[in-house]
């Protein structure tokens, strides 16, 4: 509970901090034209103020014990602790995906993303890998041939069907 409260303070603080940044950065927006019309700064000021006020209000609500209610969903087990390791692994897999797209092409990057995510969430590794490779190749072919949008083939460059 204590750590959740700290997290809430941090999140509220970040919202307020974004608001301060908005207010400060808004002063650097170039304004031209006549003085009697509302320029490009006014709305940013308002949004910045709203961010600061709601961020502080969220901190105040937390301090008064009104913690946010964590969202419920079908696949959520509310009785278990947060599994930070799994979250970190998924973020890592997503980072790997976006790095790999330019390096070795979309099909490989996509297979890594799917297999990595499914394995992280508890699938058998080889089964996840088989599904991932098939899925990535199918999507690549559909894009290259059917939709007229071609994903970078990377290492499969020049391969018929895979390179649109």
């Amino acid at each position: 509970m204590i750590s959740e409260k700290v997290e809430e303070y941090v999140f509220g603080g970040l919202v307020a901090a974004l608001g301060v940044f908005t207010l400060v950065d808004a002063t650097t927006i170039v304004v031209r034209g006549s003085a009697n019309t509302v320029g490009p700064r006014a709305f940013p000021y308002a949004v910045g103020a709203l961010l600061v006020v709601t961020g502080i209000a969220a901190i105040a609500a937390t301090a008064r014990g009104k913690l946010g209610e964590a969202e419920e969903a079908e696949d959520i087990d509310t009785h278990v602790r947060t599994d930070w390791l799994t979250v970190a692994k998924l973020v890592a897999v997503l980072v790997a995906h976006l790095v790999l797209i330019d390096a070795v092409g979309w099909p490989v990057a996509a297979a890594v993303l799917f297999a990595g995510a499914a394995w992280t969430l508890g699938a058998t590794w080889w089964r996840a890998l088989v599904v991932a490779v098939v899925l990535a190749l199918v999507v690549q072919v559909v894009f290259a041939s059917g939709l007229g949008l071609s994903l970078p083939a990377g290492i499969f460059e020049g391969v018929p069907l895979l390179d649109g």
Partner: peptide
């Protein structure tokens, strides 16, 4: 559908849909 595959699929198509907007990483 087993959940590991479901959420892996959601992430894959999320990344694909986003990438397909402008094709920039």
């Amino acid at each position: 559908i087993p959940r590991p595959y479901l959420y892996a699929g959601i992430l894959l198509f999320a990344a694909l849909g986003t990438y397909a907007v402008n094709f920039v990483v």
